[in-house]
Amino acid sequence: MDASFEPKIIALVCNWCTYTAADLAGTSRLKYPANVRLVRLMCTGMIDVKYVIKAFLEGADGVFIGGCHPGDCHYINGNLKARKRIRSVGSILENFGFDPGRLTLQWIGASEGPEFARHMTEFVDTIKKLGPNPIKTRMIL
């Protein structure tokens, strides 16, 4: 493991829960690694699998998806649709040589600022262990 490796992680998060939790982590001045870049979406249910694939093909070392807890979705059940899609894309990634651990889906509610910071820290850790996106070092497609 390269100790100096600083991964770049895309986080696709829903406006109502996880983005709000990130705001709360900010307001509470909780510190977490600076490797994650948030992309705000209205709902995890609008995450097209091609966003995930695109992120990996462009060199993202990890993709984090954060939505509302089941039952809390602002749009009734978008988070559950996301879960289904993310499961399917996980298996596709594996076929192309990406460790499925590079993609994660977590439920983080609007009031869970500390949980947001913890998830960021843990996911950055996981990705550091997995090393850089293999697409940077060898041909995948």
């Binding site: 709902c43 249910g45 609008m46 097209d48 699998v49 091609k50 649709k81 996301a82």
Partner: peptide
Amino acid sequence: QGCGSCAATCPSSAAAVAQFNDRQVM
């Protein structure tokens, strides 16, 4: 309500949510 379930499902990318379309997110 703009949840985008249709956009993420549409196999021909015909459905899109304004302000969160594929080009913008990509």
